[in-house]
């Protein structure tokens, strides 16, 4: 489902004397449907960079990033948008939404984008919020005012609202209590069971051990840091 080969990346800082910082070289990764691969490596080794490149958020310098039928490294913006809408989900650590939009709508939005009716989308969103123990009294409020843990759960609900064939998870269990952590792990396992290909970053070693089928140490793709 996700095939990466020969991927490299350099940041050129034009406003800091044109410094070129090579952060990735020769990255390879392959994730099959139903498989969960955990990215490992020390902080700064490029886990997030790789994940952002898969999502199309960072521009690839060379190489291929095949997700489904799309090569993210070469795709036009609208192809990446279609990919994000239909194929590739992403649970980031941070929630960025328009202020004042109710939580229920924030979670329902990915479904609405795929053409699901407003009512059905809200139903699904409500089920997820309930599962993640977001009190119903908060559903009509904007998540911008929520605590970090609540925001993280809203973000997870949003990421799991639509059954994406491929999923990127950036620290999905960080700042969660045991109960909610268990719910998230169940969601991940359910996604795997339905055939989703998952790439995740888990600092939570126990969680990683439970859901990840394999680990890939990105240090091997980092120039100058090769193990």
């Amino acid at each position: 489902m996700i095939e990466i080969s020969g991927l490299s990346k350099t940041f050129t800082l034009h406003n800091q004397g044109g410094a070129a910082i090579r952060v990735m070289q020769g990255a390879e990764l392959s994730v099959a449907p139903g498989e969960c691969v955990a990215l490992t490596g020390a902080s700064g080794s490029g886990k997030s960079t790789l994940m952002r490149m898969i999502y199309g958020n960072y521009l690839a310098e060379a190489g291929r990033i095949r997700v489904g039928d799309t090569d993210v490294a070469r795709a036009a913006p609208r192809e990446i948008i279609a990919l994000r809408r239909e194929t590739l989900g992403y649970v980031s650590q941070f929630l960025r939404v328009v202020p004042r939009v109710p939580t229920l709508e924030v979670v329902a939005e990915p479904l609405r984008a795929t053409g699901v009716s407003a009512e059905a989308a809200r139903e699904k969103a409500a089920a997820l919020l309930e599962m993640l123990n977001i009190p119903q009294t908060l559903w009509q409020l904007s998540p911008t005012t929520f605590s970090g843990g609540e925001q993280q759960r809203v973000n997870i609900a949003r990421g799991f609202a639509f059954a994406y064939p491929a999923l990127l998870l950036d620290e999905p269990t960080a700042s969660l209590d045991a109960t909610n952590r268990a719910v998230v792990l169940e969601l991940i396992e359910a996604a795997k069971a339905r055939g989703a290909a998952i790439v995740g970053i888990f600092h939570d070693a126990e969680a990683r051990a439970r859901v990840a089928d394999r680990e890939v140490d990105v240090t091997g793709f980092t120039p100058g840091c090769a193990a």
Partner: peptide, 17 residues
Amino acid sequence: TETLTQTAPGRAAPPAP
């Protein structure tokens, strides 16, 4: 910025013709 965006607003329309 260390934050990552959500997807840009998607639309109900099918993939662009």
